[in-house]
Write a protein that binds this DNA or RNA. Structure first.
Length: 780
DNA sequence: ATTGGTTATGTTTTT
DNA sequence: CATAACCAAT
């Protein structure tokens, strides 16, 4: 730990080492877990007190530092497991950290109740203090479907045309506010004006009121409400501040303003906050992440210890060089350069290849997979990382026909499948009779003669009386207002729900779940369904029941489901992994395939269109993340033609392909792989040629629509309490000026002739005039 | 009220 | 292309 950091920690009145602790430390032998760390990692681990910022490049042992740090704190006796707050971004990361901490300290990580995602920890805090934020402790967490349902109801109640102002868009707007930690009252005036003729903020308020009335929270609330709680109740905040002696945050570059505020409130106590992140891997800007949080850290926490981890243990030098060169094209960076001491004599440059179309791309990659497998590589060590989920289909088709085992991560999510949510809705109706959204979902599934008219009748009665819909339905049945089929159906459903509820205590939850699905007629409905996917759906339901066995009760299971959205790696044997680039962050493989490097797809036109330069840079970071997943081999691939919205389009190679460094790339030039002659081209003979991509009707429609939607939030500086919290990355002036004498690795010495951002035009003595990135020259 | 068929509409990434 | 929304017929 640096002297400065320790002094400043003491000055701030935070918990410093006692005399005895300091004396004891001297004679204690270096614990074995520290010995395997390099000096920088060790510095990051040992700087325990006071604020610490760890800038950790890809593959530099970031998770290792975090877990070792926890182990170190525990073994020094500085805190008990329950006094450490460790926050991650994804469930996957939380799971991994739990396992790794357990491995280091030996199985007691169960005792770390505060290790989890922001959302999980937020939920935990909220349940404890639910009354303080107008909820009851058993509040429900809404999924996206329910949110949309609710938003639609609000829009309908306000007589707003859902065509013109879709519920999705309204939710997007509200979510953006929540991500910035803003309640309706705090939203800057006029910000929601563009929506439904100035009703934006009002709708937020109504939506929020409805949530409270339903005793429900959406994902945004899990961050926003704890902030509100802490601000309104200094005593509660103080309690948590002293509880959490040490705080660690993973993937800090992905935090949004709400998360930042949440952390800042907690860290104002003892300031023992350690954040780990990599600005080059910030890929969630579209979701409200603020890279500026990481750039601001030293300002927020003066005297912070800053550690840079740049020694890479993962990839070959070719892969590192390719990734570094690519990312150097970004301007808004803190600037890190990965390096490795280790050079494998057999290492191979990054391969760049192209295919005629997306199907052939899948075919060629599949062949590559097979040939590597023949040479002894394991399928588990290969991954195909795509930009969009739509790209997965071609690979799946191919793998199925060739019988290559594969596993999809993060595709269509298990808990988001229709049959699963229907089943869950039934279960929720049993455990939480007041959860109207679930009731509405299943009221007529399977069809029991309750149409729109009857549903409206029930919901209006419920609204008028201020009671849950199930109760309102019971009341209505005692009158003559519902007749015929609807009456029989509704009466049957209400009676069944009642009966199941009474069985809650007398039978196991899995048994009850089966009974519910059986007696409701849901399984019968699927059995009668002759469509191709019906058997699969039944299978999914069985899988659902099976997964419930791990939990003690129905409510416990439902709680788990609402927070865990990823179907974790289905067991199975060896298989190639297929996933999005976003899902790949934090993982590594021996062999990585990066298909679809085409303009428009990657970088995505949408990112460019909506966020311009910042969007492009985020896409480039995504490419960087993709490359740095590879340990030994990386294949960059692009197709010359791709089907978009069902129409074949010709596509241009991604600009990222040409941003790779010549010396570390091997272009595959043979037209091998069965190729064009036998297969392909003829199919395109009748296809018209496109002067540029993106002329589909769908695209044209999308463009038209975009025009009348003001680009909110784009140019709005982020402020909280009038204080600037985060600014958008502005163009950083180059460190060089015209006339400077510079040296370039490849071109030698020269004079700067022109400066544009970070791009320099240099007149080199030998090589002549070249455009270069300023990161690649040094002042002479 | 349900059905089957048409047509409009949309696609990045995820807690 | 794939799904949601919509409409006419039962």
């Amino acid at each position: 730990m640096s002297e400065v950091a320790r002094l400043s920690a003491q000055e701030q009145g935070s918990r410093a080492m006692s005399i005895s602790e300091r004396a004891a430390r001297v004679s204690r032998p270096t614990p074995s877990y520290l010995e395997s760390l390099n000096p920088e990692q060790r510095r990051a681990v040992e700087a325990i007190d006071g604020p610490v910022l760890v800038l950790a490049g890809a593959g530099t042992g970031k998770t290792r530092v975090l877990t070792t740090r926890i182990a170190h704190i525990l073994s020094l006796g500085k805190a008990r497991p329950s006094q450490i707050l460790a926050v991650t971004f994804t469930n996957k990361a939380a799971r991994e950290m739990k396992e790794r901490v357990a491995a280091v300290i030996g199985g007691q990580s169960e005792g770390m109740p505060w290790l989890g995602t922001f959302h999980a920890i937020g939920t935990r805090i909220l349940r404890r203090h639910a009354e303080m934020v107008n909820l009851s402790p058993d509040f429900t967490i809404l999924d996206t479907d329910d949110q949309i349902r609710l938003a639609k109801q609000v829009l309908q109640a306000e007589n707003i045309d859902e065509k013109r102002w879709p519920a999705r868009q309204m939710l997007g707007m509200i979510d953006a506010w929540k991500n910035r930690g803003l309640t309706p009252e705090e939203v800057p005036k006029s910000e929601g004006d563009y929506f439904a003729n100035g009703k934006g903020v009002g709708l937020y308020k109504l939506y929020r009121d409805r949530l409270k009335a339903l005793n429900a929270a959406d994902f945004g609330d899990l961050l926003l409400e704890p902030i509100r709680l802490f601000r309104a109740n200094p005593d509660i905040l103080a309690d948590y501040q002293s509880r959490f002696r040490y705080m660690l945050v993973d993937e800090y570059q992905d935090t949004n303003v709400a998360q930042y505020l949440w952390l800042r409130l907690l860290a104002q106590g003892n300031r023992n906050l350690c954040v780990v992140g990599d600005d080059d891997q910030s890929i969630y800007g579209w979701r409200g992440a603020e890279v500026d949080n990481i750039l601001r850290f030293e300002t927020d926490f003066p005297g912070a210890t800053v550690v840079r981890l740049e020694r890479n243990y993962r990839s070959t030098s070719h892969i590192l060089a390719a990734a570094s060169h690519l990312i150097a094209h970004n301007e808004g960076r803190l600037g890190k350069e990965l390096f490795t001491d280790f050079t494998d004599p057999d290492e191979v440059p990054v391969t760049v290849a192209s295919s005629w179309d997306s199907e052939e791309e899948a075919r060629a990659i599949n062949e590559e997979v097979e040939s590597l497998q023949k040479k002894g590589a394991s399928l588990d060590e290969m991954a195909i990382l795509v930009r969009t989920t739509a790209q997965m289909r071609a690979f799946e088709d191919r793998f199925v026909t060739t019988g290559t085992p594969y596993r999809v991560i993060g595709g269509p999510r298990f808990y988001e499948r229709k049959e699963i949510r229907d089943a869950l809705a039934y279960f929720r109706c049993v455990t939480q009779p007041a959860y109207d959204l679930a009731f509405e979902r299943i009221i007529n599934v399977p069809a029991r003669g309750i149409g729109q008219v009857s549903v409206r009748l029930v919901s209006e009665a419920a609204r008028a009386e201020g009671i849950p819909m199930i109760a309102a339905a019971t009341d209505l049945l005692s009158t003559d207002e519902v007749k015929g089929k609807a009456r029989t159906g509704l009466a049957g459903l209400v009676a069944s729900l009642e009966r199941w509820r009474s069985q809650l205590d007398t039978m196991s939850h899995t048994e009850l779940a089966e009974i519910v699905l059986e007696e409701s007629g849901y399984t019968d409905m699927l059995k009668a369904d002759r469509s191709a996917d019906a058997p699969g759906r039944l299978e999914n339901l069985k899988e659902l029941i099976r997964s419930m066995e791990e939990f003690d009760s129905l409510p416990a299971f439902l709680e788990h489901v609402s927070l865990v959205t990823d179907a974790q790696g289905e067991a199975g044997g060896e298989a190639v992994t297929l996933m999005t680039l976003h899902a790949a962050k934090g993982l590594e493989f021996d062999v990585v395939f990066l298909p679809g490097w085409e303009e428009g797809l990657f970088p995505s036109v949408r990112a460019l269109d909506e966020n311009g330069q910042a969007g492009l840079e985020e896409e480039r970071r995504l490419a960087y993340v993709g490359l740095t997943r590879a340990r030994k081999l990386a294949f960059v691939w692009f197709a010359l033609n791709r089907r978009i919205h069902g129409m074949w389009q010709s596509s241009a190679p991604s600009r990222f392909v040409d941003e790779l460094p010549e010396g570390h790339v091997m272009v595959r030039e043979e037209a091998g792989y069965g190729g064009i002659g036998s297969y392909g081209r003829s199919r395109f003979d009748e296809v018209e040629t496109f002067s540029s991509s993106y002329h589909t009707p769908g695209w044209a429609r999308a463009q038209r629509r975009r025009e009348d939607v003001p680009r909110h939030r784009r140019h709005v500086p982020t402020t909280i309490d009038g204080e600037l919290v985060a600014k958008t990355v502005t163009e950083k002036p180059s460190a060089y000026a015209v006339g400077d004498r510079v040296f370039h690795q490849k071109f030698g010495n020269g004079d700067v002739a022109q400066v544009e951002g970070n791009k320099l035009t240099v007149d080199f003595d030998k090589a002549g005039r070249k455009r270069v990135i300023d990161g690649f020259v040094t002042r002479v």
